[in-house]
């Protein structure tokens, strides 16, 4: 079966949803502000005759109409990084600040890691973890190409992540861009639909719960955890948040994203979820002509009253950070 069938009851316009999923995605690059401004990247593209369109909701993104994110001078200089549009969203939600301690739990191949470092002006400490050593080499390559100097790379199972190799034992913020079923990337890689199985959904949901749990535990009270996937499956999205709300001291907080989204769902396949999962964002391909995505923002430490006195910026997502790429999900932990 085509797994997209099962999500038709969730979308407002089934025909538009299916039509969008069938269209290929444009090639997009994100400006790496550690090395260059969007204006300078645009000037360099103009000089070189690289055709591009701007992305209305993010001035650091360029849609390259001829397709190839590499093969141009800005890429050689590490001024740009190929990254799907929706993949910049979790770092916008995370809103990391210069000088903070940030954990990227499922980091390879590093698009979001490097976007986080960029948003921190390459100051503070990013701990980029992935369980897959081979994919970590891609992360290291990307980080060096982009000139990132504030990142430590670790190779652990995120579910049991140990802070022992670090100089500190809790983070200000954590990103769980979880391994997932990836139907949201079908415009880039249609094979994900053929390879999809319900068994995998259930197996990976268990892993996702384990990673999100560890991320909440490893983040200081009042700190921020962002959970994101590129799947439409509620089992891997709202159900994972519901589990975190039930088992850990944390709260899902409202936040804004700069494109059209719909709230998380509270009922699916006979299950009901905590009403607060509606504060998460679902991104469908037909709403913004992007890939599919899911993103939620959590404040560690329960309700606002319970953590009164901590920094309290957990729901102030804004988003002038710059993006990371888009293959959320195939990293993280062993399956």
């Amino acid at each position: 079966m085509n797994p997209l069938d099962r999500y038709e009851p969730l979308v407002d316009d089934v025909d538009a949803f299916r039509a969008a999923c069938d269209r290929p995605l444009p090639s997009v690059v994100r400006t790496n502000r550690i090395k260059a401004s969007p204006a300078r990247v645009g000037d360099a593209f103009d000089e070189e005759g690289v055709a591009y369109d701007p992305v209305g909701w993010h001035d650091g993104l360029f849609r390259l109409t001829d397709g190839n994110p590499g093969g141009n001078w800005p890429h050689l200089h590490g001024w740009t990084h190929g990254q799907e549009e929706v993949s910049v969203l979790p770092t916008l939600a995370l809103d990391p600040q210069p000088g903070e301690r940030v954990w990227d739990a499922c980091a390879a191949p590093g698009s979001k890691t490097t976007q986080i470092a960029d948003a921190m002006a390459d100051r503070g400490t990013v701990v980029a973890n992935d369980n897959n050593l081979g994919r970590l080499s891609a992360l290291r390559h990307n980080a060096e190409r982009l000139g990132v100097t504030n990142t430590i790379v670790t190779n652990q199972d995120a579910r049991n992540f140990s802070t022992k190799p670090l100089a500190f034992d809790e983070f200000d913020r954590a990103l769980v861009d979880a391994p997932c079923s990836c139907e949201g990337t079908c415009r880039k890689n249609p094979d994900v639909l053929d390879e999809w199985t319900l068994d995998h959904v259930h197996a990976v949901a268990g892993i996702q719960k384990g990673i999100l749990t560890r991320a909440v535990q490893a983040t200081r009270p009042g700190g921020t955890v962002v959970y994101s996937t590129c799947t439409f499956a509620p089992e891997e999205n709202e159900a994972v948040l519901d589990h975190a709300l039930a088992t850990e001291k944390c709260e899902i907080v409202p936040f804004d994203l700069p494109l059209e989204t719909v709230p998380g769902v509270t009922e699916w396949d006979g299950e009901t979820y905590d009403e607060r999962v509606r504060r998460a964002h679902r991104v469908y391909p037909h709403h913004n002509d992007t890939g599919g995505f899911f993103c939620a923002k959590l404040r560690v430490g329960g309700t606002e009253e319970e953590i009164d006195g901590s920094d309290g910026d957990a729901d102030g997502s804004d988003g002038d950070a710059d993006g990371s790429d888009g293959d959320a999900g195939e990293t993280g932990v062993a399956r």
Binding site: R123, T151, V153, P165, A167
Partner: peptide, 14 residues
């Protein structure tokens, strides 16, 4: 950034 000294990790900076 901040790092333990010495450190057994995969990479540190560049």
């Amino acid at each position: 950034g901040e790092a333990a000294d010495p450190s057994r990790i995969e990479a540190i900076g560049m």
